[in-house]
Design a binder for these strands. Structure first.
Lengths: 352, 352
DNA sequence: GTCTTTCCCGTGAACGTTCACATTACAATT
DNA sequence: AATTGTAATGTGAACGTTCACGGGAAAGAC
């Protein structure tokens, strides 16, 4: 059943040349006579030969595998379809360029948070086994340590996120600030003046801060400021969105429109309002951020700001390969544009 | 920056033994004196040594990498959060047992369907480079060819699905038939008699057939049969769910409850009914299958049958490692239980 | 006391490729 | 004619580990 492995030597013999010449052909080197090259190619064909990666990586110092580290446990992973976009994007580029994708996720520690110990060992496994040529890491609150370690060991690392607190990071992220600005502009253009914001604040995430900054900027452009009384904080879950909405509506001058800084909280907001018998969007408009698949099928369907997850993954993959193959690249964040998706959860402010 | 690589030889020297003895410790072999073993362990610690995978795989014939093949393009991937469960599950087991996970997805060919050519080359890449020790493959309509090829080359393969048309497959799937039965029983217990089914039929998927079989069985237990007039077919998308619902309601004796064989079509059904001003669940009950995250946050939240995606991934991983390490395993499908999740989209049949 | 057994450990070769260097052949230059 | 250059190919070693042996020492059996 298991065919005896075809080696480079077999090819060489059949083509009547030496190993090295075959190797040259395999690695697309220049100095091989055209006629010889053709003969070798055909020998490769007839034997169905292809080089063993393991044998290749040993002298070559390269495995042609890149790591994708997603320091989230399944509980969170499930709820963030975004990550699938990253995975696909990186995988596409990897495949296209002849690399393979090694995936590394974390494990839930039961509380839903990430087990640091395990997270570290996931990074460490990658480092230790010297499996990979470099890695794309999805930035989370506790990815910093792992990223540093990875880099200390000389691996090129591209961060999907802002690379907060990391020196000279290569990063890819979406234009969170601009996206938030779009959202606010949209609400303002509908006549809303009293805006509520649900941020995902407690544990500081740069993306969230950027979005908040975008809000302030857009308001400033219209001579308005962000009323701190109408900013509530959640933890990115739908439940926290519901709670935050309840708080916002309870304040002295309740908002006529709410911008939740991610879709899941926005969906929580809609649910809460629905429970309270408050009509969306007639009485209160809701806008989210991310454009997760759920956004388009909830009721009403959610107006939101789309992040190009797939493209982010692809860009990160490209950048990483650049780093691996050319040892250098433009040290400058790659920022991808966001897009306003207007659906049914926003409407002009009501007269009342 | 890049430390000179610590090799097994360095460890051997520090511990005052030979390579081979260190190797024995690394591979947990028996015949090493306890005292020597300890000395070597500590040498490994102080040097921060860990073996190079590439060097190891060469003589060992094993890479300690397992493949996870998901022959879907991003368009579909995004919409099926289930797959994330598979990924996490397989990854968990892999990590736990010292393996790494190589992910391989397909590429959209633009039409949303899978490019065969590419799909094949994805499998072939895995085979050619001899990267992997075996693979878990998510069964799709066009995964069959790839699975065969993989097996012809002597790789152990575990199929997440039914392994239709594959001889002697190792498979892991959920109890689709039993789950469907649960759903029907639930509807019957609420007093519904005229049941509609939305199946995902055209391109035959075994899982769907099993679910249909489960429906028939449950009905038979109550002396009922499935009225072909009240079976509609969709293509698993929410849109097709809407269309199918429209057809079902148009028939002579429209159903008072609809069982959609996946959640996405069920959500489509709810949307359609909502559009038509028909109240769910007061006028028509809806039940789905899968328990995707969206199911719990749509309005009304969806009663459905849960598949344990994470656990399926884990079982598949375990089975594969069994196959890899012991060269054999019980040749019998692993069937995981499904669970009825009762939420707000089902209610007792109305009197009218 | 010799022989076997068992336990521990070491040595040369191998895995399949690439690397650094050597070699050949032949044309172009002096 | 001798020299240099250039294009094409081959040769030994190396990459870091494990495998298949082989060997010595201690312990038990006759």
């Amino acid at each position: 059943m298991k065919h005896k492995r075809v080696t480079i030597e077999d090819v060489a013999e059949l083509a009547g040349v030496s190993r090295q010449t075959v190797s040259r052909v395999l690695n697309d080197r220049a100095d091989v006579a055209e006629e010889t090259r053709a003969r070798i190619q055909s020998a490769i064909q007839t034997l169905g030969y292809s080089p063993s990666l393991a044998a290749r990586s040993l002298p070559q110092q390269r495995t042609h595998i890149i790591g994708l580290v997603i320091p989230y446990g399944p509980t969170y992973l499930f709820s963030d379809p975004h990550l699938l976009g990253f995975i696909c994007g990186v995988d596409q580029i990897a495949n296209q360029r002849g690399y393979n994708l090694l995936l590394s996720t974390a494990r839930d520690d039961g509380t839903g948070a990430l087990s640091d110990v395990y997270g570290l060992s996931a990074f460490e496994r990658l480092i230790n086994t010297r499996h990979i040529d470099g890695a794309v890491v999805v930035e989370t609150l506790n990815s910093r340590q792992g990223i540093s370690t990875l880099r200390q060991h000389g691996y090129p690392v591209v961060i999907l996120g802002y690379g907060t607190d990391i020196e000279q990071p290569y990063t890819v992220h979406s234009d969170d600030r601009g996206g938030a600005r779009l959202a606010i502009m949209h609400l303002l253009s509908l006549g809303h003046q009293r805006l509520g914001i649900i941020s995902g604040g407690e544990r500081t995430l740069t993306a969230m801060e950027e979005r908040l900054a975008g809000c302030r900027q857009a308001l400033a452009e219209h001579g308005l400021t962000l009323d701190p009384a109408r900013v509530a904080y959640g933890d990115l879950t739908p439940e926290s969105g519901m709670a935050a909405t309840s708080r916002l509506l309870g304040c002295a001058t309740p908002p006529t429109a709410i911008f939740a800084l991610n879709d899941r909280m926005a969906i929580g907001a809609i649910q809460y309002l629905h429970q309270q018998g408050i009509n969306v969007p007639q009485q209160v408009s809701i806008i989210g951020f991310d454009d997760i698949p759920q956004a388009s099928i909830c009721t009403p369907d959610l107006t939101t700001v789309r992040q190009p997850a797939l493209e982010m993954g692809r860009q990160a993959g490209r950048l990483l390969l650049e780093l691996i193959e050319n040892d250098a690249a433009l040290q400058q964040p790659i920022v991808l544009p966001t897009e306003l998706i207007v659906r049914g959860s926003t409407a002009p402010v009501s007269r009342s």
